[in-house]
Amino acid sequence: MAGGRRAILITGGTSGIGLALVRRLAPRHDLLVAGRRAPDDAAAVLPQGVRYVHAPLTTPEEAVRTVAEAVLKAGWVRLDNAILNAGVGFAVPGGIETAGQIRATLDVNLTASVMLARTLHPWLARAGGTLTLVGSVARRGQGLFPAYAASKAGLHGLARALRSEWRDTVAVQVIHPGPTRTGMHAKAGHDPGRLGAVFLPAGPVAAMIEGAIAARRSPVTVSHGRFVAGGALWSRRL
């Protein structure tokens, strides 16, 4: 798989794990990043030559239309990879989120991914491509941010069903990162405290994710076990 220049869509490529992935892939592939930031703010962090589309996923229907238009505008008739990585969560006391927090979490993490998968299918199928959903180890349950954990479990179930349905056309996978040192925890209103020191840095996590994408396996957990085994050093390149 290495060698060919790929057309790759990444959501939430403007910080954290997504940005680390963008930096790894940009020199060798054609990238389109979809994000919530205004284009100027995105341009300030993205490498030269990376295309960007402003598509906040809190309004999934509109965002999916905008992303599809951007793919067309880029002149892409096929999509080798769609990496649905954008994610949000809210840390709350007592496991009780507001309606707004639940809706934003489900919209960005789950509903937008479902709708993007549906809308991008023809492009992915033409390329025999790969659909990657970025989940989380929190998908098994987490009292600090219940809707976030729920959304990631939803992605797991989506991948499990779709991987089977699309086995002859598109490889579908879910990748569950473990705790990673990005801005996400602060954005979620959560301070991991001293635990934060053992979180993995975004760079190696992105390297392991790239390896898992190249291998097209599912489900894959990308965390300390894989890291300690040298996963970030030996992982395949896309």
């Binding site: 489900l106 009292g143 954990a149 990631k152």
Partner: peptide
């Protein structure tokens, strides 16, 4: 339904 199951488990 997976999301709902894990929401229940979380809270």
């Amino acid at each position: 339904k997976d999301a709902l199951a894990v929401y229940a488990r979380s809270i």
